[in-house]
Every structure is written in C-alpha cells, then in structure tokens.
C-alpha cells in the first residue's frame, strides 16, 4: 500500500497532466454548441462585464460607416412607406365600404441590443450581446442588424447572451431566392468572413449573379424575407445532385454594433405544433397556446 502511494506521489505530475489534458479535450471535442453551460461561455457575468467595459471604448470606432448604413436603410424604408401608403389609398378607393380587415396580432417583436464582443477569424465564431433573459432574450431567437441576418441566440445569461454567428459552421440557415420558392440552406465554409455557401438547391434552378437571397421563413426563428446576401458565383460542388451558390453576405460582421433580437410571439405554439407533427402528444399545442399568450 505504501509503495502504491509512493508511486502516485512520485509520478503525480503525470496524473495531473493527464487529468488536465483529458478535461481540455472533453471541452474541445464536445462538438455541440447548444448544450454548453453558461459559465463556460462569454455569456457569463464576469466576461460580459469585461466586454461591456471594452465596448464602451471600441463602440465609437466604426460609427461613420454604421451611420451611413443606417441612413441608407432609413431611405429605403421611407421609400417603401410612401409606396405602401399610395397602394393603401388606391385600395381604399376601390373598396370604399368594407369592414376593417382583421388585424392579426403582431407575431414578431424586437429587442435592441449592443454587441460587446465579436469574432470573425475563428473556425467557430460567436457574438456576445448585452441583453439577456431579464430583457426577454431566449435561446433560438434570430438576430439581425440593419444590413441583414446576424445569427441565432445560443446561450443566455441574465444580462448577456451569446449568439452563434452566421460565420459558424454549426449554424445552418434556411434561405431562398427572392421571388422564387426554391430553398436551400446557407452555411459558412470557414474561409472568408464576407461570403457563405447556399447548398442543397435544386439543379434546374435558374439564377443570375446579384440575385438577392432572403430567409425562407420555414422556421420559427426568422420571419420570411429578411435579406441575407446576394449571389456571387456558382460554388464548387460537393454533391453533384444539388446546386451550390456562393453568397456575398450583406451583413458586415467586422463592424457589428447594434443588433435586434427577433422575439417570435408564436414560437411556443409553432414548436408545440412541430412536436405534435412528430407523433407526440398533441395536447402540447394547447399548453403552448396558453403559455404563448401573455
């Protein structure tokens, strides 16, 4: 027994080394970003505080470009507003006495958040924002900025949350070409932070360089029609049965500042419905509805 103890004491460094290496490897190769503890991600309190302090300084750096983007976006929306107003007036003339159309309750709301940490050069990129569960942010909510789609909320702390960036191979986004119903999934190929690849498109689909790619709305995360990017060229094909396109992303990931988290008021309902589709108990739908209404 004494010899055994002596052996352990004499070679303790090897055991300590092995334990640490195994622990690191477990963390490293546990390849699922969705099941991480909040304490081991940048969404924890200490990290968020430090990043907030840094961001108080660095957030001023790109204001000029961000301002220009916002002005452009504003002009676009104003233009759209004028057009819609005209259309509305015309429709009123055509249908003078109809009962007011039923106004559906608003499905999507926004939580405005500030990016306090961001990375674009890692193989798996994440973004940290300064809004958390206390502000109504929940996992699996979509995040956009003024230029396009940014990512999906992944781990949520009280006052901070980690977003899995579009520049992360773990994220697949269902997209389609604006004006057509062919959809594919957008995934980052890990090379250039300004492009991603839209895969699994049907081979016979026609496209032009410069066509706009938007979200398909097939999940509860993003509403339909949010701009993601534009077609750049045909991508090198991995699978011969499908078409792949290289997409230039409209979001400038190196200059993220203010983003909006999309909260879907019907997400619970949709999720419950999908559970029902998969052959589980359909009473979950009712529960989801009750839970979904405030």
């Amino acid at each position: 027994m004494k010899n055994l103890l002596d052996f352990f004491v004499k070679h303790s460094s090897w055991f300590v080394f092995t334990v640490y290496v195994v622990m690191s490897c477990v963390l490293l190769f546990r390849d699922n970003p969705y099941q991480q503890s909040v304490y081991l991600t940048s969404a924890n309190g200490v990290t968020a505080t430090v990043y907030e302090a840094f961001s108080a300084v660095t957030s001023y750096f790109n204001l000029k470009d961000i301002n220009r983007d916002l002005q452009e976006r504003n002009a676009l929306l104003e233009h759209e507003l004028v057009e819609l107003r005209m259309e509305l007036d015309n429709t009123r003339l055509l249908l003078p006495d109809t009962v007011a159309l039923p106004v559906s309750s608003r499905q999507f709301d926004f939580v405005v958040a500030h990016v306090i940490s961001n990375s674009i050069a890692q193989p798996n990129n994440y973004i940290t924002i300064n809004r958390g569960s206390a502000d109504g942010v929940k996992p699996e909510q979509g995040v956009v900025d003024q230029n396009g789609v940014v990512g999906i909320v992944n781990v949520v702390g009280t006052h901070s949350a980690r977003i899995i960036s579009l520049l992360n191979p773990h994220m697949r986004l269902s997209c389609k070409m604006r004006g057509s119903d062919y959809f594919g999934s957008l995934v980052w190929d890990g090379k250039d932070p300004s492009t991603a690849v839209l895969e699994e498109l049907p081979k016979h689909m026609l496209y032009d360089v410069g066509d706009t790619i938007v979200t398909s709305g097939y999940s509860a995360v993003f509403p339909e029609g949010l701009i993601v990017g534009t077609v750049q060229e045909r991508a090198h094909n991995v699978n011969d049965n499908f078409l792949s396109l290289k997409v230039k992303l409209t979001t400038n990931f190196s200059q993220l500042s203010t983003v909006r988290v999309i909260t879907n008021n019907m997400a619970d309902e949709l999720r419950a419905l999908r559970r029902g589709e998969n052959g589980e108990d359909t009473t979950a739908v009712d529960n989801g509805k009750k839970g979904g209404k405030p």
Binding site: C25, V26, S119, N124
Partner: peptide, 20 residues
C-alpha cells in the same frame, strides 16, 4: 488557458495548449 477560452468561446483549446 481556461479563462481565456471562456472569453474567446473556444472551450478547451487554449487550456490544452497551455497545459502541454
């Protein structure tokens, strides 16, 4: 290494490298 990993969202990577 682990503290840096928490900041960088790279679980285990810097920890492994610095231990070795």
């Amino acid at each position: 290494g682990l503290s840096l990993d928490v900041f960088n969202n790279t679980p285990g990577m810097h920890a492994l490298a610095s231990v070795v």
